[in-house]
Simulated scan of single mutants.
Amino acid sequence: MGSRPLRADAQRNRDLLLAAAARVFAERGTEAPLDDVARRAGVGNATMYRHFPTRSDLLAAVYADEVAQLCARADSLRSTEPPAEALHDWLRLFMDHITSKRDLALAVTDDSTLHADWHRSMLDTASGLLDEAKRAGAVRADLDVRDLLTLIKGISLAATDRPQAERLLSLVNWT
């Protein structure tokens, strides 16, 4: 038996909580007081705990939302850019995601299935973009999506700042 869709007001409160939590965690870290999240969302603590009974539930929901947004950006890039540029721009977004969401991802420790689902979503998104760029003849045919994501992750974690990450990324021979 599947869960029922939320009422409109409940969905609005959930969305407000996710947006507020993303901002609070980005500003103050994943250990920020949950009262701050409820206050920023403009809802009471009881409403927050009804939607997210534990900090871990809230962290997982926020990160899942971040991954969904990252993957959804691929569709807008596909519709506005040639395949190689869509791939490159999404990989830059992926790089930004790794550097800015790392603490959030590491804070979600309760469920390895969730991590696997998120990795699969990002891998599938990157794979689709890479395949389109290959079909267009815009990137090397021997590029492997797992190698590409590992490379971007390595750059993201090794670079001291965004300009250095961009310089390192520019060294990659895509064609």
Rank of each mutant, 00 (worst) to 15 (best):
S112C: 10
P33V: 12
T54N: 09
H88D: 01
V67Y: 05
L17W: 10
R7V: 01
W90Y: 03
R39M: 08
Q69T: 14
D111Y: 00
L114P: 02
T47C: 00
T80H: 12
N45P: 03
R39T: 09
R167H: 07
L168Y: 15
S76A: 02
L58Y: 09
F94W: 01
L171G: 00
R14I: 10
C71S: 14
P53R: 00
F52I: 02
A84P: 10
M48D: 09
D110P: 05
D75Q: 10
L70S: 02
A68H: 02
A32P: 06
F52N: 02
S170H: 10
S121Q: 05
V67C: 08
A46I: 14
G42Y: 07
D110Y: 11
R102M: 15
P53M: 00
T175F: 05
A126D: 01
C71E: 03
G42D: 07
D75N: 07
F52M: 03
G154H: 13
R28W: 13
M48K: 13
K153Q: 11
L59F: 07
D9H: 13
A8C: 01
A32Q: 06
D89K: 11
F52K: 01
T113N: 05
L114I: 05
R146N: 09
A72M: 01
L130P: 13
D147N: 13
L16K: 13
I152A: 14
A64Y: 00
H119Y: 12
V62W: 04
D36S: 09
A8T: 04
A61V: 13
P82D: 12
D103F: 15
D65V: 13
M48S: 05
T54H: 12
T109L: 01
Q164Y: 02
T160D: 08
A138F: 07
L169P: 03
E166R: 15
F25H: 07
P5E: 07
D57L: 04
E81S: 06
N173D: 00
V108K: 02
Y63C: 09
H51I: 01
W118D: 10
D65K: 15
F25T: 04
I152W: 10
R55N: 03
